[in-house]
């Protein structure tokens, strides 16, 4: 287990672009929205939550596309599927690392994003909680799409097409959690729902990803 994790950290350390680029895109997109959107602060706060979640979803799609591609091309993925006693564990680790570099990082940077999006100060805590609860579902269900489309050269579009409809509930509950916080209404229900969806994703995600990888490996 330790040895497997060590490699993930080594790859992450040597391939920092994989982490930095999606974050850079995140802030860029937030800036574009802020510039493009209406200027008065009161209206901006209303759609800030939606913008935040939309951008988090789309940035995740970018980084998910490259999740298995490198290991698929250099043959390491074959060894995982046929060599390891428990391929499921290796894949769960890889998805966890992807979540760390996108979901967790965005949660930590949420205060800055809320600031940029013109959301009032008291919203930051809820936004971080909602992101922390909802982003695992994005990575786990997204990994299934990544596994199925790793075999195609232009898999990115198909990845979004397969995964984004399934992530609609995360967008709905995440956005309304923040909007209701802006309006001062309690939003525990939304947070529970986000946690529930992430749990469902955790139960089916890794198994479906392993099955998807087994399918894609036969396309080589």
């Amino acid at each position: 287990m330790g040895g497997l994790l060590r490699r993930e950290w080594q790859v992450l350390a040597r391939n920092r672009a994989q982490v930095i680029n999606p974050l850079a895109f995140l802030f860029l997109a937030v800036m574009l929205f802020a510039v493009g959107g209406p200027l008065e602060d009161n209206t901006r706060a209303q759609y800030g939550g939606a913008v935040l979640w939309l951008i988090v979803l789309l940035t995740n799609m970018l980084s998910l596309d490259a999740l298995f591609r490198r290991d698929y091309d250099n043959g390491v993925l074959e060894q995982v599927v046929c060599g390891a006693d428990v391929p499921f564990l290796v894949i769960l680790l890889r998805i966890g690392m992807q979540w760390l570099s996108t979901g967790a990082l965005v949660t930590l940077l949420a205060p800055f994003l809320c600031l940029l999006l013109g959301l009032p100060g008291h919203v930051t805590a809820t936004a971080m909680l909602a992101l922390a609860l909802g982003s695992p579902a994005i990575s786990l269900l997204g990994a299934v799409g990544a596994a199925l489309t790793v075999g195609f050269s232009r898999g990115g579009i198909l990845l979004g097409l397969l995964v984004l409809p399934l992530l609609l509930p995360v967008l709905i509950f995440g956005t309304s959690a923040i909007n209701q916080e802006v309006a001062g209404i309690t939003n525990n229900a939304q947070l529970y729902w986000l946690g529930f969806i992430s749990m469902v994703a955790l139960t089916i995600g890794p198994f479906a990803t392993t099955a998807g990888l087994r399918i894609s490996l036969q396309m080589q």
């Binding site: 269900l141 409809p165 399934l166 609609l168 509930p169 709905i172 509950f173 969806i197 469902v200 089916i204």
Partner: peptide, 12 residues
């Protein structure tokens, strides 16, 4: 996977 998610999507 779609079928598992349909109830959740419908409810949300």
């Amino acid at each position: 996977i779609g079928t598992i998610n349909i109830p959740i999507i419908k409810y949300s």
